[in-house]
Amino acid sequence: MNSFLVSRRAALAGGIAVLASPAVVRAQADPIKLATLTPLTGSGGTYGPVMAKVAGSVVEEVNKAGGVLGRRVVLVSEDDQTSPEAGIRAARKLIDVDKVAAILGTWASSVTTAVAPLCWESKTFLCTVSGADSITQLPHQGFLVRTQPNSKLQVTHVAEFMLSLGAKKVFTMIPQTPFTQSTFEILNQVLPKGGATHQSLIYDDKKTTYRTEVDQALRAKPDAILANGYTADSVVLLKDLYRAGFKGKVLGFAYSINQKLVDQIGQPEVVEGVYNFAPSPAEGSTAYEKVKAAVGSASPDPYTCQVYDHVNMVLLAIAAGKAATGEAIKANIRAVTQGGGKPVDNALDGLKAIAAGEKVDYAGASGPCDFDEKGDILDCKFRYEQIKGGKFTLVKIA
């Protein structure tokens, strides 16, 4: 008798109703399944493992506290190999076999573009860190948000940064990507307003040398080059720019101009003075400190911080919607991130507040998670660094 009462109280406290139907009880007791689909290998392989790791740390913490809706959370991690084809195969497995409620952390824009239709067709929620404008223009029916600023926001910021460095003639060198044309369009709009000209070319990122392309760019006599590729091709490009004697400023996204690139080049003089830029995490926040501890890094990258936020806000949306489905997440994701409720920066505090009947407003390691109707993040700060003596030094956060 006493053991029954204890079990019943525990079940009710965990949010599991004692119902007559065994099938319903089983369904409610089944674990909540979420997934990370990150680039564990390929050109994004520097970031994917850490992104998956931080997601696992959140799930572990939540499970130790009793889970969500009285159910344990299971995280399935798959490798998209930084390849649309591999991403599709992995997403099909996650959706059809694992039956996850949400997929978190897609990185390359080409992968997200390929995977998104599978998600909205199956009503699986998708959180991404991809930046191409075209992604939120897809007919995703609300089953997608991204914490990465879109191309317009990112390229506008970098254009303004180049102008602040005194650039007058900018040349962009970029492979063909989902954001190539929008990058050109935005730079062509922003740079002339600041008194600078802009020219550009698209290169084949599989080539072993870009000397022909570099010579073409240098004929325009640029004082700044935006090297807008990935790490592997940026290694080749920076070497060729150095060999060609380019003395102007070189900038690139931090996902390509990173420590891996510096190590692969192995010649400090080649990368000396090169700038990188990235959306800035919410440095100094409690959530940011949690990410640092979880991944063992003094300066976790923006994507890892964003995936930390993906897991937390999805778990809160599930709790608010009282259902572990993509539809429940879709219906509640904005309610728990920009609803004007109690400020929280982690799932545990948010889950307690929701259980007490309170509204919550989540802001995390990447900053405020406020989205427009298309799923785009409304704004964020950017971090600018410069390589000096083989090390990245902070220029400014703005």
Rank of each mutant, 00 (worst) to 15 (best):
G87N: 08
S110A: 15
A159N: 14
F253I: 04
V236G: 04
A287M: 04
D96N: 06
G326T: 04
Y210I: 06
A328N: 08
A102D: 15
I103G: 01
Y203L: 11
W120D: 02
L19H: 07
K99F: 02
A90C: 08
V336A: 02
I174H: 05
I387F: 12
H140T: 08
V111C: 02
V155A: 00
S134K: 06
Y275M: 09
R383Q: 08
G341E: 05
L316K: 04
L187K: 10
Q28W: 00
S21I: 06
Y242C: 04
V115E: 10
C305Q: 01
K330H: 08
K193W: 08
K206W: 10
Y203K: 03
G66K: 03
V50R: 11
V235Q: 11
Q28Y: 03
P39F: 00
V271I: 15
G70H: 04
A347T: 01
S109P: 14
V97N: 13
D349M: 13
I318P: 07
N188W: 01
L251E: 08
A52G: 13
S280E: 15
M313I: 02
Y303D: 07
Y242L: 03
T41C: 10
A324Q: 04
P49S: 05
A116D: 01
Y308Q: 00
T112V: 12
R211W: 00
V395P: 14
R219V: 06
Q137M: 03
Q81N: 06
P22I: 14
A20H: 06
G350D: 15
L238V: 09
I354L: 15
S122P: 10
I318Y: 01
H310Q: 07
I318A: 07
D372A: 09
R8I: 04
A282P: 03
S200H: 14
R71E: 10
R8N: 09
A102T: 05
A244F: 05
D372K: 09
A356H: 14
L12P: 00
N228V: 05
A227Q: 08
G296Y: 15
F161I: 05
A90H: 05
C380D: 14
I88T: 11
A132M: 00
V76N: 04
A320D: 09
G229I: 02
R71S: 13
E358N: 13
P22E: 14
L34R: 09
V115G: 02
T128G: 15
V58L: 00
L351Q: 13
A17H: 02
T106H: 13
L251G: 03
D96M: 11
N346Q: 06
S21H: 15
T36N: 05
A108K: 00
I135D: 00
L351D: 05
S122H: 07
P268N: 11
K123M: 09
R146M: 12
D79G: 13
Q386V: 11
M313V: 02
A27C: 05
T36F: 00
E269T: 07
Y362D: 00
G44M: 03
P268R: 13
D379N: 14
A328G: 04
